[in-house]
């Protein structure tokens, strides 16, 4: 899980769902909650766009 690459002293504020540290987000992913699914989608979206980002910096 690439969320592991985010420093431990970072949290994400996700609207009314609240604040999640890196480790809490990973737990949410493992539990399959709505926040966990959103975190997975964020990760996948980023990975899908990597080729586009690579072209941008060529």
């Amino acid at each position: 899980m690439r969320l592991n690459a985010v420093p431990q002293d970072v949290s994400f504020s996700i609207g009314k769902y609240g604040d999640y540290t890196r480790n809490q987000l990973i737990e949410e992913v493992e539990k399959g909650t709505e926040v966990g699914k959103a975190a997975t989608e964020m990760e996948l979206s980023f990975l899908r766009k990597l080729p586009k980002f690579a072209k941008m910096i060529e």
């Binding site: 420093p7 002293d9 970072v10 949290s11 994400f12 504020s13 996700i14 609207g15 604040d19 959103a38």
Partner: peptide, 8 residues
């Protein structure tokens, strides 16, 4: 969702 990353 609107995400805001924060350093503690």
């Amino acid at each position: 969702k609107f995400w805001i990353p924060r350093i503690h």
